[in-house]
């Protein structure tokens, strides 16, 4: 997907673990892991708000657009 999540880089810069971030923003570790690995389809503004607040960054620091082929829907068929 052209949209890439840079959570791992920011966490490294802040020296924060994914578990700690999950505790702080109130999102389960599993869901945060989905977001970090780029498997998420969408992110709520409330989640983005909590992430930016705890990581002290802008939404653009977490999510970046990288031109590439569009994602193919892998839904049930």
């Amino acid at each position: 997907m052209p949209i890439r999540v840079q959570l791992d880089r920011i966490l490294l810069e802040r020296r924060m673990s994914l578990t700690e971030l999950a505790d702080r923003v109130g999102v389960t570790l599993a869901n945060l892991s989905i977001l970090k690995t780029g498997k998420a389809r969408a992110i709520r503004f409330t989640t983005l708000d909590a992430l930016c607040r705890e990581l002290n960054c802008q939404p653009g620091d977490i999510i970046v657009f990288e031109p590439g082929p569009p994602e193919i829907d892998d839904g049930p068929d």
Binding site: A40, R41, A42, R44
Partner: peptide, 12 residues
Amino acid sequence: GARLRREAELTI
């Protein structure tokens, strides 16, 4: 419906 369910599951 299943596709929307999958999207809802992957909305963080």
